[in-house]
Write a protein that binds this DNA or RNA. Structure first.
Lengths: 347, 347
DNA sequence: CTATTTCATGAAATGGGTTTCATTAATCTG
DNA sequence: CAGATTAATGAAACCCATTTCATGAAATAG
């Protein structure tokens, strides 16, 4: 591989000092027009590309931020990344994407690497750090990192810490979805999916319960089915629900779109029609939601904004601008085809 | 923000020279056990994290590679990224993910940034550079980059250039899918989706045609419908096909899973059952394919391997290991629910 | 016991930029 | 037109590691 041209090569050939070349490159001080032209010509001739490493070393900023995700294969994360990346470009950042694949050591491993690489900010989305029961060592580690690097937690909730956070208010979203079903005449509403120790699950269940109770309705204990977040889990949990032919809900709220799709599958495998026989509502408004038949009624989490605000926050911190520590986005209900009027009761 | 500790701080406190600290850090030369211990203690005390910028500057390697994708929101790309990222971790690389969002300048913009950041390799997947009709300026630019940085093209095909390439043989995949339909008794087969100037479309159409002709069947001109790669496009194109009630295919091959899903939607909106009335086959085996009802018969592109081999190639180039310029993966057919025996003809 | 390796370590150069400080030339002020 | 600014540029320090070269100490060879 060819040796890279340096600012010294340019200076020599243009018969000026490196300082002047640097000034032309960064426009940090006035340079005589004729000198500038001469330098520019040499730069273009060699297609000179200043070494960002050297620059970052002294400037103490790399123009690089990172996002640590648990599973890039889950379509929710690419959506957030998309929004983040748009904003990052505007602000002059390039993105490291670190996929932990649910591997436990991976988070702290990446954390070390990113710190060594002196990234200008780290966004955590999902993953253990965003869990209510996150191991204290990891919290400790991330907290240490946050002392030198801006850290933003997206859609998580580490209560007693004071990390920067951006999240969408899942409780509001769940309440919205619940109310939607009530308005459609449903009285027998169930909730499925999500691990019971994860914030995202806990908050939703709480909100569903509250919304129902506010209107003298109850969420039966047997109608809360916890589990994974996958299609398969959704199918299994829905089947459990349907196995009890005695008590069968007329509507099911799901922790995310994946489980909702699984639920639809389980229902249609039993010959039930959605939404005529049973209404199903998802959460996330992932690309999947318009892919299935029937299209999913779901709650949008403003995924792009989630990413956008996280990056914006990092930018503000790095530039000494005033910021709030918490940004809350309000989810919106998106009514499509999988929810409909409650079936008439035949006693 | 606190000042970072440097190797000099460590050296001073441990009462040795920086060279010795460096030796301990990198294990590049023998150090007396007692000295090593003393140094390690200081390192741990300060949680010293050596500055990767300074290291990279002199080592001329950054441990960083980049992937440039046109749309991370399309589930095909996260899958490839996933495989690439696994391999990258094994080889000690961290990943920049650059999303061009189909914005034309973005590719060359990112290219410049990545070169300045001195990444150890660049993977292009999709995007203009992989088009048969890629503008020559861009080819030129990427070629220049390839002189100093290993560049690998994934699933593309810039014929006359000699870039490193990794791709799955889409022609084989399309032939596989076609044969599958023929075996099921279908004779009236159509193809929908994909822009007609994109390699991925061209190759598939060609392969479908050839497979049919080899068995004395033909692909009617009206049954090739070009368009975008989206669900909506799939729906529209399928509707066009179905509008002609005179000639109606019994099976439809789609350029990707998105369009296949759109096609299923169009069919079921008209009361047609898949696969009883019409078979539909997708391409890519994206996560979507098991999400829809019926689950999609599709062709897997070995997405993870695609990414894996691309990273492996970069690693090999950087370490002066012998490599081939081209790696071809063979797609596999995955039969699920959306394809079935051809309906009995009622003349 | 002397000669030759090997071990253990430090000083200084290097990588490729940015920035401060100093100096001279050019322009402005009154 | 003298004095005060401002423009234009260069020299050198700095950022923080790695690595080469040199040197003295310890270990091995003969």
């Amino acid at each position: 591989m060819v040796k890279n041209t340096t600012i010294y090569d340019i200076a020599r050939e243009a018969e000026v000092s490196v300082s002047t070349v640097s000034r032309v490159l960064n426009d940090t001080a006035p340079v005589k027009a004729s000198t500038r032209d001469k330098i520019m010509k040499v730069i273009e001739k060699h297609k000179f590309q200043p070494n960002a490493l050297a620059r970052s070393l002294i400037k103490k900023e790399t123009g690089t931020i990172a996002m640590i995700v648990p599973d890039i294969t889950n379509p929710f994360f690419p959506e957030v990344f998309y929004g983040a990346n748009q904003e990052a470009r505007d602000k002059g950042y390039t993105f490291f994407l670190c996929n932990t694949s649910g591997d436990d050591d991976r988070e702290s491993e990446y954390l070390t690497i990113l710190r060594e690489k002196r990234v200008d900010g780290i966004i955590f989305i999902g993953g253990r750090i965003n869990l209510a029961n996150c191991p204290p060592e990891l919290v400790q580690e991330v907290q240490e990192a946050a002392e030198t690097i801006p850290v933003v937690l997206v859609n998580g909730n580490l209560a007693k810490t004071k990390f920067h956070r951006v999240y969408s208010d899942e409780a509001v979203g769940a309440a919205l979805a619940t109310q939607h079903l009530i308005d459609l005449g449903h009285r027998d509403i169930a909730f499925i999916g999500g691990l019971d120790f994860m914030t995202t699950t806990i908050q939703k269940v709480k909100a569903v319960k509250k919304t129902l109770e506010d209107q003298q309705l109850t969420l039966r204990k047997e109608w809360i089915q916890y589990g994974e977040f996958s299609i398969q889990a959704g199918r299994d949990l829905m089947n459990k629900l349907l196995d009890d032919s005695e008590h069968r809900p007329t509507a099911v709220l799901c922790v995310n779109d994946f489980t909702a799709i699984g639920a639809i599958k389980a229902a249609s495998e039993r010959g039930l029609h959605v939404p005529e026989d049973i209404s199903i509502v998802g959460f996330d408004d992932s690309p999947l939601s318009t892919a299935v038949i029937p299209e999913l009624t779901t709650v949008t989490q403003n995924t792009h904004e989630l990413g956008k605000y996280a990056v914006e926050r990092i930018f503000q911190i790095n530039n000494g601008m005033p910021t709030k520590r918490t940004t809350v986005l309000t989810p919106k209900l998106i009514v499509r085809q999988s929810s409909g009027p409650a079936p008439v009761k035949r006693k």
